[in-house]
């Protein structure tokens, strides 16, 4: 059975590129347009991995990460941050909030799949 990934980004083009890459590798993809939308979908579907942007309207990726880690299903699920942010301070915040890894945009599809394969098992 294909593993499901929740891809969260307010940019439609990024969501499409992520979905294209992941679907091509056999994953099922659920898309969310911001943190709030992602939280709703994370509650509705028990996904195997969350790949989220940080700077988004309504709810940012760090808040989403923090809230997801409080949900029993998402305590140990890999959550990767895919963002333009590359500062150490932001990375430290993400790490403290329970992020599994940090990927700086733009992403390379092969490397993205390698990382996902590594953390999703």
């Amino acid at each position: 059975m294909a593993k499901t990934i929740l891809a969260v980004d307010d940019s439609a083009s990024i969501r499409q590129m992520v979905a294209f890459t992941l679907k091509g590798a056999g994953y099922e993809v659920i898309e969310a347009v911001d943190g709030q939308d992602a939280l709703d979908k994370a509650n509705a579907y028990k996904v195997n991995l969350v790949l989220t942007d940080i700077n988004m309207p309504r709810m940012d990726g760090l808040k989403l990460l923090e809230l997801l880690r409080k949900l029993s299903h998402y305590k140990a699920i890999p959550i990767l941050m895919l963002t333009t942010e590359s500062g150490d301070e932001m990375k430290a915040k993400g790490r403290a909030a329970g992020a599994t890894g940090w990927l700086v945009k733009p992403f390379d599809p092969k490397r993205l799949l390698e990382v996902i394969g590594k953390v999703i098992g």
Partner: peptide, 11 residues
């Protein structure tokens, strides 16, 4: 970012 090269990855 100053260019479109792939960004860093850190696990």
């Amino acid at each position: 970012q100053q260019g479109m090269q792939m960004g860093d990855i850190e696990l």
